[in-house]
Design a binder for these strands. Structure first.
Lengths: 153, 153
DNA sequence: AGTTAACTGTTAAGATATATACTATTTATA
DNA sequence: TATAAATAGTATATATCTTAACAGTTAACT
């Protein structure tokens, strides 16, 4: 089903450029919603899981990341990280630790966080692979290349 | 610049499927932010402008749309439309009107809303065209086709 | 007619996002 | 060294989004 049919749109947006932008928006929106549904079964949100993923894969020797680093990696405003980490601290998924540079906090996963991540991550990986099996490997590469151009233009 | 470089990611997400999903997310996120920046110059948010766009292009003879219709077209929960329309009513961009079926509200643009839309829409169109000129028409068609598959899978 | 089911909009609680302004700290520079 | 600039995190106000529960209206069905 085309995007227009799906949304019940009857006319307008008939310029191809608009359609491309709309497609990016709505596809991302749907993927995000499906991912969030998945994560909520484990009592985390998609954004919170994103933090855990970054702490797992992106911190040097598991040494943690600062809020500013998380902010950059997630394309999210610094201010938003504060409350996000507040909630994750409350849920005992991460801790704030002081560093040499006293402007920084170092965010690390707790044991509980690591355990949850270890359980959920492989399942999520399967979900992504399944979802993307809708298109061939070649198309995936094309998609990545095209979006890269759009994004960095 | 590749997505990984841009975000300062050092490893992980190295499976192509993950990259494709990440690319969709982040491209959409960037486009959304850029659009929102643009609209805020005119004291509307991107979501509010989306409502106006639908009221302009999608309502029968300018007869307005119900909140449920807007909800479906925007892939947004009904509950969210309530507060969205509240704010737009307050800003005098739209009005709620009663209908024969007393379950429905009919949302219409005010004169002020129409005037603003007439001013902003062509400028936004230019922005989209410019943004999408990063890729060729053929690539735009490919993009649309590929995302359509991913979305409806 | 009367009951049930479906639909619309609202409300409430909570999460995520923005911008702006502020404090504290560190770095750069005159 | 002293001042200015940059950086990190927080506080606040506002917007958007989710789910769940609820009330009123309409449609379907016995």
């Amino acid at each position: 089903m085309s995007l227009k049919e799906e949304l019940g749109l009857k006319r307008g947006f008939n310029v191809i450029e608009h359609e491309a932008v709309l497609n990016i928006y709505f596809t991302a929106s749907k993927l995000k919603k499906r991912a969030d549904e998945f994560f909520r079964k484990f009592n985390v949100t998609d954004v919170q899981f994103n933090v855990m993923m970054l702490l797992h894969y992106q911190s040097e020797d598991g040494g943690g990341l600062s809020q500013a680093q998380l902010s950059k990696m997630m394309l999210v405003n610094r201010a938003n990280i504060t409350s996000l980490i507040d909630r994750m601290e409350k849920a005992e998924l991460v801790t704030r630790n002081s560093s040499d540079d006293r402007r920084y906090n170092i965010i690390k996963m707790t044991g509980k966080g690591k355990k949850l991540f270890g359980k959920v991550e492989p399942l999520y990986g399967k979900l992504v692979v399944e979802k993307m099996s809708a298109i061939k490997k070649g198309e995936q590469k094309q998609l990545i290349a095209i979006l890269e151009k759009v994004r960095s233009y």
